[in-house]
Design a protein around this nucleic acid. Sequence first.
RNA 1: GGCGACAUGGCCGAGUGGCUAGGCAGAGGUCUGCAAAACCUCGUACGGCGGUUCGAAUCCGCCUGUCGCCUCCA
Length: 522
Amino acid sequence: MHKVHIFNTLSRKKELFKSMKEGFVGIYVCGPTVYGDPHLGHAKSYISFDVVVRYFRYLGYRVRYVQNITDVGHLTDDADDGEDKMAKQSRIEQLEPMELAEKYTYRYFRDMDRLNVLRPDISPRATGHIPEQIAMIKTLLSKGHAYEIGGNVYFDVTSLPDYGKLSGRKLDEAESGSRVATSDEKRHPADFALWKKADSSHIMQWDSPWGNGFPGWHIECSAMATKYLGKTIDIHGGGLENQFPHHECEIAQCEGTYDEPFVRYWMHNNMVTLNGQKMGKSLGNAISLEQFFTGDHKLLNRPWSPEVIRFFLLQSHYRSTTDFSEEALTSAESGYRNLVEILDLLHLVAQNGTTSFNGNRKGDATAEGKKSKKNDVDEVNSYATGKQDSSGAPFDLQTLKDGLHECMNDDFNSAKAIGFLFEKLRPLKQPLQNGKIPSNIGELSDFVTQFCRDVLAIWSLGKTSDAQDEVPFNEVMQLLLELREQARKNRDWNTADQIRDRLKEIGVTVEDGAGSSTYKLS
RNA sequence: GGCGACAUGGCCGAGUGGCUAGGCAGAGGUCUGCAAAACCUCGUACGGCGGUUCGAAUCCGCCUGUCGCCUCCA
């Protein structure tokens, strides 16, 4: 039986995961505020939790994954005086708030899809759950956890003795902190808004028992998480910077409403840094995912493919900061290509058994590859025959499985798992190329495929193999390589080199291996 | 100021007190008409100072440095 250990922010320890309901996992992750393009920081967070969800599913759990879309309530400034982020951006872009939300929601999912991040099972919108939020606020008021002043409703943090338990904050400290512009009407500086009164100029407003207004930022997550996952949920995830105040407030609202523990395991991913500084919109150093994919940013020299971005991020642990640099991306890319080559080889040999085919596919690991005309036939093929022997010693599959499971069970250590994959699979490369095939190649391939495709999702087999124009192009190439091979046999180096040089000019690199030649698009 | 992290070889990055993480780059070698690619081999690193211990990158303390949160942010 698998024993997954999760670092729980509540206890600051790794704990054995036990779901409330045997075989089921409910997980809520704070989604984006859709007022701008997603950047590398979003990618780190959502890829991290993507792997968590994927791994639980791989283990056989039925997972319900809820991730909200925040389209109202996020204020640009202090919770009392700030303007709603959505409203502000709507004005700048001259769009209806709903247009704006749709635009950036679409772009968010588009970029996550590219990164091979599975979509949540439920993506609830904050604006779609105003009644639920109002209901919750009413309960909090009736139970004495909140108070209303002139159309504004605030949560009374002193009404909950353990407020601050997640972030380790104490109320008296917050009080002494000399914060700017705390509203006079709040009873305690740490009290936070549940409902804000809206004046007539405010674009987004709803009717409520306290007059027209809009919900505070934190209440949406409380309302939606409990609506879809119950009063107590297994796992709640989000970025480290949301630990306080956002997650602390979520706890206060839920536990104040239901008098039951809100979350059993809190998970927080760390930040992406750029030159040691957090990458964030407000700091102006965020590179959007779209910019990574196109290379269109002053800090980027070239485009980077989603596959490489994903691999790069998974090469560090989700609770570690990931320091971004193109140098680091470059080495991640090289490593990724090497790994994919082994995976492809393994898969192809397993598929073809003892046939003479002996080639492999190059994944479109580079964004340049994507841009190339023949982006879907970025292949290496060889036509030479090689004797294969599938009676080799069996590969120690159990050790591989156990090792990978151990990595993932230890707080989803994808970085360690990737290291382990390299360690175990790399020695397989040469024997496979020489036709020395372990007897359990089928099992091995099935497992590795499953793990790399379904859990880490860093490799998708057959992704490019069905391209329409691939077959003719391949055949033409095979013909050229055959002609060149004849020339080489006749020691007609002029012809052989001419073919290779001309192909090189067109953008096709020919490489002569032992007894066979291969080509790839550059 | 309060709270919380982190400091690992040229770069990135795992790390359960004693046994090689891994990747990239680099060096040497094998193969090859040449080239390229590929494959094989190679690096004994853990911020500083103390302490615990037979033994610490790993535990404790102090110091230095970096970062995050305390205001919106994945």
